[in-house]
């Protein structure tokens, strides 16, 4: 439902969105040279970036996952960033349940501090076990695309199926991370059974 008039709260939202955008701008200006350079994303990764963003809407985090109701929802990318600018564009100005979305990129798992959705790049496929261990007990929705990702403890794995992108969900891992995944998302997903993936 779209509201046409600018109510007070709508105005505030746009302001806060603007304010949130300023540090992001600086951050990107500062951080960008240090971080791995965003490369030009393929069509596949544009879709995946959108999915990544959509996950934020179909997953519920426990309240203690946020410092405050207005605390940002952090989407982290660990390892090589395959999305290029696509993810930044999708996420720009978006707010989910009062949380502004921000993107953080990490070179290694140690850098991960507060993170809600962590895309674990294929570059980190060999270190998955270590990564999942260090994330244990944290409310992080792990998303990956390497083989056996979901099976080895990741929560959502992108899979390609006849030129379409699907995903597979490990409900046990989600439960372990105290995350509630919307049944609607589950409808669109494959559920990982033990021994699969």
């Amino acid at each position: 439902m779209k509201t046409c008039k600018f109510s007070k709260s709508a105005a505030m939202v746009s302001w806060s969105r603007l304010l949130a955008g300023i540090p992001l701008l600086f951050l990107s200006l500062w951080v960008a040279p240090l971080q791995a350079q965003p490369t030009v994303a393929t069509k596949e990764y544009e879709v995946k970036a959108a999915f990544l963003f959509n996950f934020a809407r179909f997953v519920e985090w426990p309240t203690n996952a946020f410092n405050s109701p207005q605390a940002p929802l952090v989407i982290g990318i660990l390892g090589t960033d395959p999305f290029g600018a696509a993810l930044n564009e999708i996420v720009r100005g978006e707010i989910v349940n009062g949380h502004p979305l921000i993107i953080q990129r990490y070179r290694n798992i140690e850098e991960v501090q507060t993170c809600h959705i962590l895309f674990i790049s294929s570059s980190e496929a060999r270190r998955l076990e270590q990564i999942f261990r260090s994330l244990r007990g944290k409310n992080v929705l792990t998303v990956g695309e390497s083989d056996g990702f979901a099976h080895s403890g990741g929560i959502i794995r992108f899979i390609a199926d006849q030129n379409r992108i699907r995903f597979r969900v490990n409900l046990d891992a989600a439960r372990a991370a105290e995350l509630t995944i919307s049944s609607k998302l589950l409808r669109a997903a494959e559920i990982v059974k033990p021994g699969q993936d």
Binding site: V47, F51, F58, S182, K184, R187, A188
Partner: peptide, 15 residues
């Protein structure tokens, strides 16, 4: 509409 949000969000035409 409520049920089909995920299908649209994740472009799952089958769903």
């Amino acid at each position: 509409a409520a049920n089909s949000s995920a299908a649209l969000a994740f472009k799952n035409a089958e769903d």
